[in-house]
Nucleic acid binder design. Structure first.
Ligand SMILES: [Mn+2]
Ligand SMILES: [Mn+2]
Ligand SMILES: [Zn+2]
Ligand SMILES: [Zn+2]
Lengths: 141, 141
DNA sequence: TGAACGATTTAGATTATATCTAATGTGATA
DNA sequence: TATCACATTAGATATAATCTAAATCGTTCA
């Protein structure tokens, strides 16, 4: 995706396209690795423009609120982030905590009887187990 | 569930039934509210036996490893815990972060082609949106 | 019984992650 | 150019979780 498209998607969500915010968004779109805030902060600061830690967190919060980025909480580890491109599920490794994309398929919604007065925004399917890298060590643990 | 049953389930997992560990497990089984470690620590210390913060965390870690307790990571908040009784899904409120149980239903597994060399342990379905308490304020936000 | 030893607990220090504060900068608009 | 809301910043602060090293507990077995 080119710079103009990123700019448009930010502005379409009511967010100014600042250099720091653009850099966060562009980095997330180039990397499907689900980086942490600290990794994004570092990566953005290896090139211009520079961005403070507070700004990195602020922008991630804004992008999540705008629905352009997803935050993935992993037990016992820093949150990871993900530009919402194509729909997909996630596989989270029990051992190393890495988050990997899995091809999307439809998930059955709960019956409305079970929802009650709750308002459902999304159904998220998370797979857990051992990733390709960790599966061999699985037996030994 | 009575005390003997808790004792047996701990010992069946190779964990000694210490007073502190028992108290954590018993509290989780009595409360379906998905308390945080801090809440469990407080609750356990309102009655005997007392337990230190480190012990509370240690025991939660041990119980999760033994598969008796589930840890639920919620973005931007402390982890929550859940005695694994009957299978169920979770609804997590976008606004207040509360975790609520939802009746269980079968989730389609990914095709093994998509899994590759990964070892799948479980498929977790998480519903997100606004809980009953927060739904009314949803419009205003 | 009691010595030995691994498992467990403990208070407090430390680390890791994330947010807040208050001052400063920036850009769109009038 | 003046204004004003939005955005950025360094550093302080808050929150969540883990680590450390010493003390205690419980089981085993001589
Ligand atoms: Mn992803
Ligand atoms: Mn539950
Ligand atoms: Zn792994
Ligand atoms: Zn709520």
């Amino acid at each position: 995706m080119d710079a103009e498209a990123i700019k448009r998607s930010l502005e379409g969500s009511g967010l100014r396209c600042t250099p720091q915010r653009y850099a966060v968004m562009a980095f997330l779109m180039e990397h499907t690795r689900h980086p942490t805030a600290a990794e994004i902060f570092e990566a953005v600061n290896r090139v211009d423009p520079r961005s403070s830690r507070a700004t990195t967190y602020n922008n991630l919060r804004d992008l999540v609120q705008a629905g352009l980025v997803r935050e993935v909480a992993v037990e016992g580890r820093a949150a990871r982030f993900d530009a919402k491109g194509m729909r997909h599920h996630h596989f989270i490794c029990d051992r190393c905590g890495n988050v990997e994309d899995m091809e999307w398929y439809d998930v059955p919604r709960p019956p409305s009887r079970a929802l009650g007065k709750r308002i459902l925004r999304e159904c998220e399917l998370i797979f857990r187990g051992h990733c390709t890298k960790c599966a061999p060590r699985h037996a030994s643990r």
